Simulated assay, not measured.
Amino acid sequence: WMEDSKEVQIEVFKRQIALSKEYNLPFVVHTRDAIEDTYEIIKEVGVGPCGGIMHSYSGSLEMAQKFVELGMMISFSGVVTFKKALDVQEAAQYLPLDKILVETDAPYLAPVPKRGRENRTGYIRYVVDKIAELRGLTSEEIARVTYDNAMRIFGLNE
């Protein structure tokens, strides 16, 4: 819901990216109905050495690839399990494994077969299972790679 003007949102977003660089932390972006604008702003401002995360990604493979080229990781929520989310499924299927994350976005966006209910952290397995199915891998392989990716981007490996 747009309570502030677009200009104010852009300025605050740019400041958040600057703070992530200053404090050497990744930044997390949830964009709705503004994916092109979001891309242009990140492209203009640049991603710091810790990168960033496109949270609860709902765009196309092509846009996801553009974000990855800027230094972002793509995080998939329960949306990837939705029957009509073909763009999101394509992105989950074809992005490099080292650029993907999984999340619940609880309490929202519960995955199939829990759709319509309050989302819970334990439902992450449905997101992992769907990505494994799309990629022809095991759920254990997807769980491992996304765990390793999360540890890396949040600097928890040190």
Score class of each variant (00 low, 15 high):
E118V: 12
Y23R: 11
D4S: 15
D37M: 12
V47H: 02
Y39H: 04
I35W: 07
R152K: 13
K130G: 05
Q93C: 11
E3D: 14
E118F: 14
M73T: 08
G116Y: 06
M73G: 00
A18G: 03
P49L: 00
E90K: 15
Y126W: 11
K84E: 15
V12F: 11
M63A: 07
E22A: 15
M63E: 08
R144T: 03
E3Y: 14
V8P: 11
Y147A: 01
R135F: 13
E3C: 09
A143C: 07
L101P: 07
L134N: 01
F154L: 14
M54V: 10
S20G: 15
Q16V: 13
P113N: 12
L95C: 02
E36R: 00
I41D: 08
E62D: 13
P26H: 01
L19I: 10
G71L: 08
K130H: 07
I153D: 01
G59T: 09
N24L: 10
Q93D: 01
A64R: 10
I35F: 12
A34P: 04
I41V: 15
T104H: 06
D129S: 12
L137H: 13
V8C: 06
V80I: 05
N149V: 01
Q9P: 01
F82M: 13
A150F: 12
E90W: 05
V127E: 03
V128I: 15
R15K: 15
E3T: 11
A91S: 06
V88H: 09
L134G: 00
P26I: 07
R15L: 12
Y39L: 08
V8A: 12
L109P: 13
A150Q: 06
A132T: 04
I42Y: 05
K114N: 13
K130Q: 14
G71S: 02
S60Y: 04
L156T: 01
K99N: 03
L70Q: 08
L97Q: 08
M72D: 11
A64H: 02
Y126R: 13
N119T: 05
F82R: 12
I53H: 01
P113I: 09
L61R: 08
E3V: 08
K130Y: 04
H30R: 12
S58P: 06
A34I: 05
D98P: 10
E90V: 06
R117C: 10
P96L: 07
K6W: 11
Q9D: 05
Q93K: 15
L70D: 09
A18L: 04
Q93N: 02
I74F: 03
G116F: 05
G48I: 05
V8S: 08
D33I: 02
V88C: 06
G51L: 04
L95W: 11
Q89S: 08
E140D: 14
F82T: 07
V28W: 06
V112H: 14
I10K: 14
P111D: 05
I41N: 09
V47W: 05
E3W: 12
E140S: 06
A106H: 11
R152W: 00
S5K: 12
R117E: 15
D98L: 10
V79H: 07
A110C: 05
Q16F: 13
E44P: 13
T146V: 02
R120S: 11
C50D: 01
I42R: 01
T38N: 14
V80R: 12
A143R: 02
A91M: 12
F13V: 04
E36P: 00
A106R: 03
C50Q: 13
I35D: 15
L156C: 03
G59C: 03
E3R: 15
I74R: 06
